[in-house]
Amino acid sequence: MDNQIKIRGYRVELGEIEAAIRKHPAVADVVVVASPRTGDTELVALYTGEPVTTGELTRLLREHLPIYMVPHRYQHQDSFPLNVNGKFDRLALSRQA
């Protein structure tokens, strides 16, 4: 699966968003997925670690990323599902988003 998507006419590397979210000290790990919504694609960040408010994460990302790269939603997870290779199962996570 490609980790580069097109959103609002911009090419976006999901890994770049994930790296910015990992800068928060309460976040252990993060996976950003694209969730199709009516007429648009929505970015959703699923993260582990300590729960953090949406406002706090949004403020952090606005300091480091353009607004079109800031996720619309954040979901705290206890853990991430893994695929058979031991990597994060992005497909399963996108279904949860």
Rank of each mutant, 00 (worst) to 15 (best):
M1E: 12
D2G: 05
D2E: 15
Q4H: 12
I5P: 00
I5R: 00
K6L: 04
I7S: 09
I7V: 14
R8N: 10
R8C: 06
G9L: 04
Y10M: 14
R11Q: 02
R11Y: 00
E13T: 01
L14T: 09
G15A: 13
G15V: 05
E16L: 05
I17S: 07
I17D: 11
E18A: 05
E18V: 02
A19H: 08
A19D: 15
A20V: 03
I21S: 03
R22F: 02
H24K: 01
H24Q: 04
H24A: 07
H24C: 01
H24W: 00
H24F: 02
P25W: 07
A26E: 14
A26M: 07
A26I: 01
A26C: 07
A26R: 11
V30P: 03
V30C: 12
V30S: 13
V31C: 14
V32C: 04
V32L: 07
V32A: 06
V32K: 05
V33C: 11
A34E: 11
A34L: 14
A34G: 13
A34T: 04
S35Q: 14
S35V: 09
P36S: 05
T38A: 14
T38N: 13
T38E: 15
G39N: 11
D40Q: 12
D40G: 01
T41V: 15
T41P: 01
E42I: 06
L43V: 06
L43E: 04
V44N: 08
A45V: 09
A45H: 00
Y47D: 03
T48M: 06
T48K: 08
P51V: 06
V52D: 08
T53I: 01
T53P: 04
T53L: 01
T54L: 00
G55E: 12
G55A: 11
E56Q: 13
T58F: 02
T58P: 04
T58N: 11
R59H: 10
L60N: 09
L61S: 10
L61Y: 12
R62N: 13
R62V: 07
H64V: 04
H64E: 13
L65G: 14
P66V: 12
I67M: 08
Y68K: 02
M69Q: 14
M69W: 05
M69E: 12
M69H: 10
V70I: 09
P71M: 04
P71Q: 05
R73C: 08
R73G: 10
Y74I: 13
Q75D: 08
Q75K: 12
Q75F: 06
Q75A: 10
H76Y: 11
Q77R: 15
Q77K: 15
S79F: 07
F80P: 00
F80E: 02
L82K: 15
L82Y: 10
L82S: 11
N83M: 10
N85H: 13
N85C: 01
N85D: 11
G86R: 03
G86A: 06
G86E: 02
K87C: 05
K87I: 07
F88I: 15
F88N: 11
R90M: 10
R90W: 07
R90P: 00
L91S: 10
L91W: 07
L91E: 13
A92F: 11
S94Y: 05
R95E: 14
Q96N: 02
Q96D: 08
Q96M: 12
